[in-house]
Design a protein around this nucleic acid. Structure first.
Length: 554
RNA sequence: UGUUGAGUGGUGCAAUGGUGAGCACAUCAGUCUUUGACACUGAUGAUAUUGGUUCGAGUCCAGUCUCAACAACCA
């Protein structure tokens, strides 16, 4: 039973291409530059490219666009591969634009022989000046009319390392008055005496994006080359080069990159946050990087669902982070093990409970799980509950504990608060309560109905854990569009650490691949900083809290 | 004063000339609840604008307005 979901514009194009017989199967590619870590915007592109070939039949290559040796590193290659795999996708071939450097060089020579490329000795400043503006035509370079022979010779000498960086470039010979600035004799090759992460010192000239990307697509016989909107003006050049070179005609299609509010999504800005230590690294759980959200506890399933829900189109957009949070809550609700942890404790003493008695309470690991399992939690005379779960003078509709009021302790007994004990400063140090023996969970004959249920831990059995609570990294929706520097809008309280929270014993053996819901608190996962001496949890996302919202209104 | 692309509830997508412009998130009001979670019910709310074609326009045509991208030896 296939649910009839409308196709996005790329799916429509592909369906038409398949129906018309233009292609019998499709080929896409994900082409990251290995100069940084992948972020949520890339996740969208990954889901799109891999999703399309899966849906329509075909394959997707992972191709590193490594044509700029000065910014690219193997470390990034590894992280990118890990991220793509983690998201749940398999590429057909792992490829590198640098694999094609010989072919690309031959293509460049061919362009020269066709009289469609020339070596220019102008400096970058001179070139910029001669380029004109969007509304004014540019001027021809004085080197534009060199003979084919001279160009061949010069280009070969560029390759042989006879010239210093910046002294010469190879340019396409198109039209300096073209309305598309990119068609005004774009640079095809430049000299860079730099060590390349894969080709080492073999080359000292490297192709520019436009001389490498479309050609790589063509070599791999990519049918649908999908990129973001800022490459729209490049398409004309993409097509021009393929046409003149008479190579396999790949086609470029553009979609709008996805933005998310309360964060930034450009490598340059993310790099600044890392370098200037506003965060602790690329995988800081507050970062919108794949490695960041992974460490934060997001699941691949939830990210794929998110990318699927936001869809793909050609208009500018800023997606609400709330949707991502919804997606991860929805998935985590299904898989997370329920546990009880008290962050800010206040002691409860059950005056009618035997001093040395310990009962093991039976509690479900996950009520959403069809094959429900349980764990046992020790219960005793002295317990911790959350300080905010008690109020001496509660407002209306307050379901939690208050003098004379009753609440249920999750999976245990109903208790009533009889007495509040305070210290000299008036701070509450202890709540003296009585429990209702006949109200035991699963065996309740009390017939008493209470509105509130609290989480708790037994004082003598509690284990201490560190909990890291994250909030949005920025205090405004779109930091990049605000006045001044985007970093002026960083949320100073994006990380709050609870050094010692009190957890039920089961969490002592928490595992990295498990997800937890701390009941009434949120979803959490084990952080890599955990060790023998201390367990650390990251809050992935809070639970929805309609009570907190109601209180804010008041 | 250029070229290219884009304008549908608060947000993201859909409606491919034909019911009352649909879906999700968010918001609001309820129901349920041993998580104020989850689940469930209902509600609010949009075609940038002007004119035209047509029996009929979000969709086609013309104009206007708004936004974005384009002048790196980055990708």
């Amino acid at each position: 039973m296939s649910e009839e979901k409308s196709l996005n514009f790329l799916e429509e194009i592909i369906e038409e291409d398949l129906k018309s017989g233009k292609y019998t199967s499709i080929a896409t590619r994900f082409p990251p530059e290995p100069n940084g870590y992948l972020h949520m915007g890339h996740a969208s592109s990954i889901c799109l490219n891999f999703g399309l070939s899966k849906k329509f039949g075909g394959f997707t290559n992972l191709r590193f666009d490594d044509t700029n040796p000065t910014t690219e590193e193997t470390e990034y290659v590894e992280s990118i591969k890990e991220d793509v795999r983690w998201l749940g996708f398999e590429w057909k071939n792992e490829l590198y634009a640098s694999d094609y450097f010989d072919t690309l060089y031959a293509y460049a020579v061919k362009m020269i022989r066709l009289g469609l490329a020339y070596v220019d000795d102008s400096t970058s400043e001179e070139m910029a000046t001669m380029k004109g503006t969007p509304t004014e035509a540019g001027k021809d370079s004085p080197f534009r009319t060199r003979s084919i022979e001279e160009n061949i010779d010069l280009f070969e000498r560029m390759k042989n390392g006879e010239f210093p960086d910046g002294s010469h470039t190879l340019r396409a010979k198109i039209d300096m008055a073209h309305t598309n600035m990119l068609m005004r004799d774009p640079v095809l090759y430049r000299i860079k005496h730099a060590h390349h992460h894969r080709t080492g010192d073999k080359w000292c000239i490297y192709p520019m994006y436009d001389m490498a990307h479309g050609q790589s697509d063509s070599i791999e016989q990519i049918t649908h080359s999908i990129c973001t909107l800022e490459f729209v003006p490049h398409r004309e050049l993409y097509d021009w080069l393929i046409e003149k070179l008479e190579i396999y005609p790949s086609h470029q299609y553009e979609f709008a990159r996805r933005n998310i509010n309360y964060t930034v999504m450009s490598k340059r800005k993310l790099l600044q946050l890392v370098n200037e230590k506003h965060v602790e690294g690329w995988d800081d759980p507050r970062m919108p990087t794949i490695s960041g959200v992974r460490r934060r506890g997001y699941t691949p399933e939830s990210i794929r669902d998110f990318c699927d829900r936001i869809g793909v189109a050609k208009r500018e957009n800023i997606v609400d982070i709330g949707l991502l949070e919804f997606c991860v809550r929805e998935h985590l609700n299904k898989i997370a093990l329920r546990r009880m942890v008290v962050f800010d404790p206040v002691k409860v003493v059950l005056t009618n409970y035997d001093e040395d008695k310990v009962e093991l309470m039976h509690s479900e690991n996950n009520p959403e799980d069809p094959n429900i399992t349980h764990r046992e939690i020790p219960f005793s005379r002295e317990l911790y509950i959350e300080r905010e779960d008690f109020m001496e003078n509660p407002p209306k509709k307050y379901f939690r504990l208050a003098p004379g009021q009753m609440v249920r302790l999750k999976s245990a007994y109903i208790i009533r608060c009889d007495e509040v004990v305070k210290d000299a400063e008036g701070k509450i140090t202890e709540l003296r309560c009585t429990y209702l023996p006949e109200s035991k969970s699963g065996n309740d004959t009390s017939t008493i109905k209470v509105k509130g249920t609290l989480h708790w831990v037994s004082v003598s059995h509690a284990v201490t854990v560190e909990v890291r609570l994250y909030d949005r990294l920025f205090q405004v929706e779109d930091p990049s569009s605000e006045e001044g520097d985007f970093k002026d809008y960083i949320n100073k309280d994006s990380l709050q650490v609870v050094k010692s929270a009190y957890a039920e014993p089961a969490l002592k053996t928490a595992k990295f691949d498990e997800r937890y819901q701390f009941i009434r608190k949120g979803y959490f996962c084990l952080d890599k900083d955990s060790s023998e001496d201390g367990v650390v949890f990251n809050r992935t996302v809070t639970l929805k809290d309609t009570w907190a919202k109601e209180q804010q209104k008041a």
